[in-house]
Simulated scan of single mutants.
Amino acid sequence: MNAATDVAPVISAANQSLKNDFPLKPFAIKHKLAGHPLLTLQRIAQLASELPRDLIEYNSGKVAISQDPDAIPSVDLDPVEVVNRIETAGAWMVLKRIENSPEYRQLLEDTLLSVARARGFNSLLDAGFEQLEGFLFVSSPNSTTPFHLDSEDNFFVQIHGEKFFTIYDNKDRAIVSDDEIERSMTKHRNLKFDDSFAPRAVEFHMFDGDGCYVPYQWPHWVRTAGSFSISMAITWKTREVRRVNDLHFFNSMLRGIGLPQKPPGQQPVLDMLKLAFYRTVTTAIKPLRTSLAMRKVLRRIALGKKANYYLKGA
């Protein structure tokens, strides 16, 4: 281990969890990001004024754990107002892809680099931390994030307020089926929740400076307590995660034109062919994604007419 590992990491975990459980199991973490100047409400409001509108999603925080995505109540405020009035707005908001801002990208990279070094690696790439992305969450008191899963690995850090993060093991697909995983990743993230899932739950009770590691595709739901909340998801995608994600998206597109598909991994040779074709096409259209209007069109083509559900009038 080099001299850089002597520096106290921004994120740390007890009981050797970074070595024993990562990346297969969730575990509690501690961090030093609470109070960071980029993570205050004032600075987040500025970021909300700068991000493209399709990288900001918000709605009422008064929703069910098993929320019907077609019946999510909205909040009649603009993004900056939501942040500035979060204590009373009754809202839930996420600012996506904050790594597009150089300052936030540096924060994400520095944080994950401290984890890489704590695990004995000299760089993010050596540690497998590729395609870094950041998501900032701002929630009013007593708000709920419905049951869902994410398409990346995630260090979730609590910056301000009290939050309960409840996560479920789904390795045997008893909680969320392969079909529902694909739909959650490609249509709308919300999943159906049943109280019978409770025995499989691991709950993290978090305050400023706390957090947890969320493995790829582990379903979870989140609620705040009596104060507004600021949280951040520091995410990355390994090569294997990107491969599986791409197959889910292409399978969804093929299913949309009436061609049934098996989940990734069940037909390795066919998966390889589908992946090559999908990546060739997406590479060709990547330059078009610089335009907000074109991104909306491409999402509708790939994911269906409700793909822009979080944009008013889309």
Rank of each mutant, 00 (worst) to 15 (best):
L259N: 08
V241F: 12
V241K: 00
S231W: 06
K187E: 10
H248S: 08
Q267P: 04
G209Y: 06
A201L: 07
T186H: 02
I230C: 03
F204C: 01
S227T: 14
K237R: 13
N190K: 07
W236T: 05
S177M: 07
E180C: 12
R242W: 05
E240Q: 13
A198D: 11
F207H: 14
T235D: 15
W221R: 00
W218R: 02
F197K: 05
E182Y: 05
R239C: 11
V176A: 03
D246P: 05
K262T: 09
N190S: 12
R189Q: 10
H188T: 06
R189N: 09
F250D: 00
P263M: 10
S227Y: 04
E182W: 06
T235W: 10
A225F: 14
Y213K: 04
K262A: 09
N251P: 12
Q217M: 15
S184R: 04
D208R: 07
M232Q: 08
S252W: 08
G226W: 09
T186S: 01
T186M: 00
V222C: 03
V269I: 11
E240S: 14
D246S: 14
F228M: 07
D195R: 09
Q217P: 03
V222N: 00
E240G: 12
H248W: 13
G226V: 06
I181H: 03
G226I: 09
T224W: 00
G226E: 06
D179N: 04
R242F: 07
M232F: 08
V214E: 01
V222L: 04
F250G: 01
V269M: 13
L191T: 11
A198W: 13
E203R: 14
D194A: 15
S231F: 13
M253Q: 10
Q217Y: 14
F250Q: 00
P260N: 08
R239V: 15
A233K: 00
E240D: 15
R239W: 15
R189F: 14
T235C: 15
Q217E: 11
W218G: 01
S229W: 01
T224C: 03
Y213Q: 02
A225L: 13
R223K: 13
L254S: 08
D246K: 09
D178M: 03
F250W: 09
S227L: 14
E180S: 15
T224M: 02
R223P: 03
H248G: 05
